[in-house]
Structure formats: structure tokens, C-alpha cells
């Protein structure tokens, strides 16, 4: 059972069941807890090898026990996502915790990484249950429908779910004189049906460190 304590701390009530969480994100607990490191994203040796190859870094731990365990990471805002036989695509660094029953894996997402500095691979969370994702400042959830495609700055993208196609767009608005770019030249365009999570911050922008 996931609940938020404030907007930046996740409290998970455990009654003998397990939760997967980002390594080192436990800030406090009461009751009895046992911690176990998971190789790769929790999908065994094969998953770990895939991860090595894909460069998607995710070190998770499994926490099992009786009581309440509190998780937080670098004062990030935490957003809860409910999955109903659904897949959530999330940048590995933005995944805080998932129900023990959810499967995590990696998926190829196309060319987005070119601008954001993130890998070409994204972490997937599949199944039915809850997940907690992190954002720098509270995330905004935007719906994409066939009539309303959405353009997102790669640095602000954190996750999406649903049936979405994404295209990496570059240079569409790149009109310039004197070598001045518009600063918004690289975007991800989402089309289809689903939800996109964006954070009010950019990991890094094309223009360098802001």
C-alpha cells in the first residue's frame, strides 16, 4: 500500500509482502524490515546483461517485512501511478519504487537519447499495481489523444503510459541568423492515446547548463 507523506516522502505499509525500491532510497522505517539487493532491474541475470549492454542504469532493492518503510530521494517530488495490466515507460533515474508484483524491464524507445543524454532505452514497469515515480518539482500529467498530439522538451520528459508513438523531432523550428538557435529545437512528439508525465525542470538543455 503506497501513500505519500507530504509530497516528497513515500510511505509503504508492508504486511509481510515486498516492495521494490531504488537502492539507498530508504530514509526510515518502523517494524521489521529485510533488504535485499536485486541484480539488474529484478529480472535476473539475463536482464542484468541486457542492462549492461543498453546502458540503462537501475539498481533496485527488495524490501520485505512488517511495518512502514519510508522512501525519498534527493527531495524529489513523488507521483503515484496506478497500473491496470498496463505498461509504464519511465526513465530509470525517475523510478523510485514499485509493488513487488510488478515486472520491470527495458525497452528500446528510439532516438530520444540523442538530445537528452539519456540512454536509448527506457525502463518499463508492467502489470497491475502501484508505482512511484520521481520528478524535480511536481509533475504535470498531460493526456495525448489522436486530435491532440503533444510536444515535449526531452529534458522535462519523465514517463508515459498508454498506446503512444514518439518521434524525435529536430530542427523543425530551427530558424536562425547569426547562429542563434531558438533553444527549443529538439522535441519529442507524442501521438496516439495515453498519458505523458513532464517535470517543471530540464535535466539539461541544448544550450548547456542553465
Amino acid at each position: 500500500m503506497f501513500r505519500l507523506q507530504g509530497s516528497k516522502t513515500l510511505a509503504v505499509d508492508l504486511t509481510g509482502d515486498a516492495v521494490k525500491a531504488k537502492n539507498g532510497s530508504m530514509v526510515a522505517y518502523d517494524g521489521q524490515m529485510a533488504f535485499k539487493k536485486m541484480s539488474g532491474g529484478g529480472e535476473g541475470l539475463r536482464g542484468m546483461v541486457t542492462r549492461r549492454l543498453t546502458g540503462e542504469q537501475m539498481v533496485m532493492m527488495e524490501v520485505k517485512g512488517q511495518g512502514t518503510c519510508y522512501f525519498a530521494d534527493r527531495a524529489s517530488e513523488i507521483n503515484l501511478v496506478s497500473l491496470h495490466s498496463d505498461t509504464l515507460y519511465v526513465e530509470a533515474s525517475n523510478l523510485l519504487a514499485t509493488d513487488g508484483g510488478l515486472r520491470t524491464g527495458t525497452s528500446f524507445t528510439g532516438l530520444r537519447g540523442g538530445a537528452s543524454g539519456n540512454g536509448l532505452f527506457t525502463t518499463t514497469v508492467e502489470g497491475t499495481g502501484q508505482a512511484a515515480i520521481m520528478s524535480d518539482g511536481s509533475a504535470v500529467v498531460l493526456r495525448v489523444t489522436p486530435q491532440y498530439p503533444l510536444n515535449v522538451d526531452p529534458g522535462a520528459y519523465i514517463a508515459h503510459q498508454g498506446r503512444l508513438q514518439q518521434h524525435f523531432q529536430s530542427g523543425v523550428n530551427f530558424r536562425t541568423i547569426m547562429g542563434e538557435g531558438s533553444g527549443e529545437s529538439f522535441q519529442i512528439r507524442f501521438e496516439g492515446d495515453g498519458l505523458v508525465y513532464v517535470q517543471p525542470s530540464e535535466r539539461n538543455t541544448v544550450g548547456g547548463d542553465v
Binding site: G6, K8, T9, N23, G24, S25, V27, A28, A34, F35, K36, K37, M61, Y70, A72, D73, R74, A75, S76
Partner: peptide, 30 residues
């Protein structure tokens, strides 16, 4: 399990255990 996880010698393997009657303030960050 926590000690095995974070590696020996690292202080992260320990927690501060507070018992008695009162309150502790914890920040949302390490």
C-alpha cells in the same frame, strides 16, 4: 541484508535506531 547490499565499511549500512517516547524529524533526502 542492508550491510551486504551497500558494501562493507560503508556507513550506509547502519541506521540510527531511536526508541522511547518522542518524535524524530526526517528529511526527504539523503
Amino acid at each position: 541484508g542492508l550491510r551486504d547490499m551497500v558494501g562493507r565499511g560503508s556507513g550506509e549500512a547502519f541506521q540510527l535506531e531511536l526508541s522511547g517516547n518522542g518524535a524524530v524529524y526526517v528529511q526527504a533526502s539523503e
